[in-house]
Nucleic acid binder design. Structure first.
Lengths: 195, 195
DNA sequence: GTCTATATACGGATAGAC
DNA sequence: GTCTATCCGTATATAGAC
């Protein structure tokens, strides 16, 4: 075909999403122009506005999409009954979900500053729901006497920061396989809170 | 006095540093203009170039200054002999140094993308020196049989990510005092690696 | 749905007067 | 050391043709 002009909404839509995600992860939201995203997609800048109202909405949709995918994936897992097993399940789920999504994670944590107030509030409430999932596991285990916590909210944030930090150095070409990473971090998490 | 024009290098220099740090922490490097920084300082944009060669160098100086202050502060502390006491010393030092410097920490971790290759390499080498300080404590404790580690490098990064993550939610007006935070995190660190 | 062209604003950096 | 003025490039977003 090699048409230079025509209708491609089903193809272009995902390409805009992917190009924006990759470029923003690499250079930052403010540093990436709509023209750059368009060039990566293979269209002119004006065409992007068929897929997003504006640049701010594009960022918001990327972040909301990531958080909804995370919550959806977590909700659809089978959770063990035992608190220790459930904490291991959460730890391994978190690593498996986040490691292959380095760009999404990076953007979702680094670009919160660039959301307007309403969009920020919505993303924060989604993040809060995810934190609550871990905190509930910790509190349940504490109530059943198998975890020791000084402060369930602080511990929740500490563990999530530790786990999410993997993305700052993990490279899939590196020497450590994902299963090995899971084991190392599960060991740290378990020792940090289990009796 | 109220002069509108004249020499103020000793005053303006630090003000440029402070204004740039605050604005970049709040909005991001790419989103902040030299004109905005100048307005915050109370001069015109052209005057900033008496204090920095360009915008890139301004960012680099902020980050290098932070890392050098961190390493200098660590080097000048008295380290206990005992590995467990040394790890507690590191943990509390890290929290006490980072918590009052939220803007510096935020910029130093979020704006690495915006450094050019040479500047990035220099900041990374400083960061690596700091990581090495913790890793040495962990390896020493492991050799003496008081710590259990699966991987000293990964554990180092995990603990630093956990500790540095405090800055993402800690607010000095909040309900938790710094000493309480230190205790909670020291408990997590100790349990994660100590026998 | 995509193109070209454009309105309008702002960016980093520099020159020369004071 | 700071100012004003400016060079030159790029930004987001829109209008109208195809």
């Amino acid at each position: 075909m090699a048409r230079k002009q025509g209708s491609h909404s089903d193809i272009t839509g995902p390409k805009v999403h992917d190009a924006a995600l990759r470029l923003i992860a690499r250079h930052g939201f403010a540093a990436v122009s709509m023209r750059q995203i368009a060039a990566e997609v293979g269209v002119q800048a004006g065409a992007l506005y068929n897929y997003t109202a504006d640049k701010q909405t594009l960022l918001f949709d990327l972040m909301r999409g990531h958080m909804l995918a995370l919550l959806g994936a977590w909700d659809s897992t089978d959770k063990p009954e035992d608190p220790v097993a459930r904490l291991e399940h959460f730890t391994r789920f978190h690593i498996r979900f986040h490691l292959p999504r380095a760009d999404e994670v990076f953007v979702s944590y680094m670009e919160l500053r660039n959301l307007n107030a309403a969009n920020f509030a919505e993303i924060e409430s989604l993040r809060r729901r995810y934190e609550d999932a871990l905190e509930e596991i910790l509190r349940d285990g504490e109530a059943r006497g198998v975890f020791v916590l000084q402060d369930s909210r602080v511990t929740t944030r500490a563990l999530i920061a530790m786990l999410t930090g993997i993305g700052q150095w993990y490279r899939s070409e590196g020497p450590l396989e994902m299963g090995r990473i899971e084991s190392i971090y599960w060991d740290l998490v378990r020792r940090a809170v289990a009796i």
